[in-house]
């Protein structure tokens, strides 16, 4: 099986999606969230469940005064190793797939 790596440095390969997702996350005692597993609707209406294999980076920002945490994560999706970004919007408690 061929494994494709989408390196972070080649962020252009990732498409901006900003699609809301259903998330199971793990929060530490200090309140640090980490994504664990999420379910995303696909264009054909079916759902795909993705287990977050690795969280590589987390970055906080507050554009427009709206705090968000962006996680760079890695998983096997459809048999391929994929790098993608998910976002957690603190005020609404919503999770999004930002880029994939």
């Amino acid at each position: 099986m061929k494994v494709y790596y989408y390196n972070r440095n080649y962020g252009d390969f990732m498409k901006v999606l900003m699609k809301p997702i259903e998330m199971i996350a793990w929060f530490t005692q200090d309140g640090l969230p980490t994504p664990v597993r999420f379910r995303m609707e696909q264009p054909n209406g079916s759902y795909i469940v993705i287990k977050v294999a690795r969280t590589i980076a987390r970055q906080e920002e507050k554009l427009a005064g709206n705090p968000m945490i962006t996680f760079t994560c890695q998983s096997i999706v459809h048999g391929m190793e994929r790098l993608y970004e998910i976002r957690y919007e603190l005020k609404t408690c919503k999770w999004y797939v930002y880029k994939i």
């Binding site: 920002e61 554009l63 427009a64």
Partner: peptide, 13 residues
């Protein structure tokens, strides 16, 4: 500007 920044944050291109 605020609307624009918010939209960019929410994935607007």
């Amino acid at each position: 500007s605020w609307e624009a920044a918010y939209r960019l944050q929410h994935g607007a291109t």
